[in-house]
Nucleic acid binder design. Structure first.
Length: 504
RNA sequence: GGCGCAUUCGUCUAGGGGCCUAGGACGCCGCCCUCUCACGGCGGUAACACGGGUUCAAAUCCCGUAUGCGCUACCA
């Protein structure tokens, strides 16, 4: 159910042509060289939302032309994480490594059109050219020689050298991007080098493959990271040389770490995989991701997937980079967990504990304990990993954390009185459920004339051994009378040991 | 060095010339909620990078400066 309040607030740019643009074709094109990054995940989300909003198609393409760094494991991981996030694709996944014929054909067409030329310069010559340009405060753009004589070429071939193919950037000239987010961005051709489209072994480079694929797959809108913006004119040039029309572009700002540098591993959880392991559910992750660089209005901070689909509009994406704040994710996660239906929460919790191997390590009753304890922890957690800190005591015999024991040992006499008082009331209770327990303990508290903390804290430690735990009344109820009484006695006995020889 | 982009509270942002003595959220600080941890409630702290224009009026438009980031490969 959408909030009628927020729908009453009009977005700045009314959705017009996009709303029914069922021809919209967007794509997400990661290179499988690692796990899916937070930045990549957000790009994927934006694309997915744009497609779903318009009723268009979302295409997945793996850019694995770098055979050195691309791995099947990484590819599998990316697909897995996409599914975890709920981002389903309509076409693909396509692999560039399987489309070699298409690229070779495109390269041939570029050759026929005279748009590319063979460049024989060696790596050293190239380095020298760039170094010289830099020294002269010029743009370090490479323009290969195009006037090699037949003899020279024959000589190099004899040496075993093979040329790369460079795109002949038309001079003078400029390429203009009408970016949906950044507005008009102009690149002077003088600043664009004659980039390589085919390596000396004949394989395509990124700029060629991406351009060809976007054309061939009918992509009409490219939503990608701003780090690609300087590649865009190159790809547009290639597309036009092939007789195609470039798509609409929307370059989204980068996601930064807290040091304002592009987010990477050293910033902690930088991949979706890590967020998953850190106990976050997909929904809050999506919510946090979408709000990096995008907002619907000045107030709304939580969205269901349906609301996002309805409201998302790339044109409202911000131009400036955003710092990824884990704390905010945590807050969203906590809110989401608390808002869950109790049964649903229990399902998620058990599933998580099972998936992480937590239950397997804790005996046959573990799943049952986990499910029954879910209501005791739902309000207290902001991520699933916090479960053990609160409810870990349920799975083991009574043992005291140092800090908790110190609390008791600090004043053994008082501890014995409080715990003994609690035990006296609890062991005679017939109905060992939450309300009677609470009444009995509250009454005893008054009888002994102690403050709530003075009286209740020892009770907590007596049964949980922890100073941070689930609530006392519900914990006692869950434990059941026999187990609770046993724990009380055990604590008392241990305290008595410490008391002998003490100061009565 | 070259080119490009960006710049509102610590963070994410609202803001498209007067509605802005700049709004919201998170954080942080304080108080409340007679069980810890949390939750929740209430209150507070905190920003238009700087300098010039344009205009009756600028956070909003223009120019410059500074700073930051991105790209600058036969990586993607």
């Amino acid at each position: 159910m959408a909030r009628s309040l927020s729908t009453a607030i009009l977005p700045r740019v009314p959705n017009t042509e996009d709303d029914l643009n069922t021809d919209l074709r967007v794509r997400f094109a990661p290179s499988p060289t690692g796990s899916l990054h937070v930045g990549g995940a957000r790009t994927a989300l934006f694309n997915w939302l744009a497609a779903r909003h318009a009723g268009g198609k979302f295409i997945l393409r793996l850019e694995d032309t770098d055979r050195e760094r691309s791995t099947p494991e990484s590819e599998a991981e990316i697909l897995r994480v996409m599914q975890w996030l709920g981002l389903d694709w309509d076409e693909g996944p396509f692999r560039q490594s399987e489309r070699d014929d298409i690229y070779r054909d495109a390269i041939d067409r570029l050759k026929d059109a005279g748009a590319v030329y063979a460049a024989w310069e060696s790596a050293e010559e190239l380095d020298a050219m760039r170094a010289e340009a830099r020294a002269n405060k010029q743009a370090p753009v490479v323009r290969g020689r195009r006037d090699w004589s037949d003899d020279e070429i024959a000589a190099m071939k004899a040496e075993g050298r093979t040329p790369v193919w460079r795109f002949a950037v038309p001079l003078p000239g400029e390429t203009v991007i009408e970016d949906m987010i950044r507005g008009t961005v102009t690149f002077d051709h003088a600043q664009i080098e004659d980039f390589v489209v085919a390596r000396s072994d004949g394989t395509p480079t990124y700029n060629l493959a991406a351009a060809v694929d976007d054309l061939e797959m009918g992509i009409n809108r490219v939503i990608r990271g701003e780090d690609h913006i300087s590649n865009t004119p190159k790809q547009m040039l290639v597309m036009r040389a092939l007789g195609g029309t470039p798509p609409q572009y929307a370059h989204v700002p980068l996601i930064l770490g807290t040091d304002k540098k592009r987010l990477s591993k050293r910033h902690g959880a930088a991949s979706v995989e890590e967020l998953e392991a850190d106990g976050f559910l997909p929904q809050p992750v999506r919510n946090a991701l979408v709000l990096l660089g995008w907002s619907y209005d000045d107030k709304t901070t939580t969205f269901t997937m349906d609301e996002l689909i309805e409201k998302f509009d790339v044109r409202r994406v911000s131009k400036s980079p955003a710092v990824f704040d884990m704390k905010k994710l945590e807050v969203m996660s906590g809110r989401y967990l608390r808002a869950l239906d109790p049964d649903q929460f229990a399902d998620e919790l058990v599933q998580y504990l099972d998936a992480t191997g937590y239950l397997a390590d804790r005996g046959p009753d573990a799943a049952d304990i986990a499910r029954r304890s879910a209501p005791l922890v739902q309000r207290k957690m902001s991520r699933l990993t916090e479960y053990d800190r609160l409810a870990g005591w349920l799975y083991r015999p009574l043992e005291f954390e140092d800090e908790a024991w110190e609390f008791l040992a600090n004043d053994i006499k008082h501890a014995i009185q409080a715990i003994g008082g609690g035990l006296g009331r609890l062991e005679v209770l017939d109905d060992f459920s939450m309300e009677p327990i609470k009444e009995a303990l509250s009454d005893q508290l008054h009888v002994q004339g102690l403050s709530a903390r003075e009286f209740l804290e020892p009770q907590r430690i007596a049964i949980t051994g922890q100073s941070i735990s689930t609530g006392i009344y519900e914990s006692l109820e869950m434990l059941g009378k026999d187990a609770a009484v046993a724990r009380y006695r055990q604590t008392l006995a241990k305290l008595a040991e410490g008391w002998t020889g003490g100061d009565a």
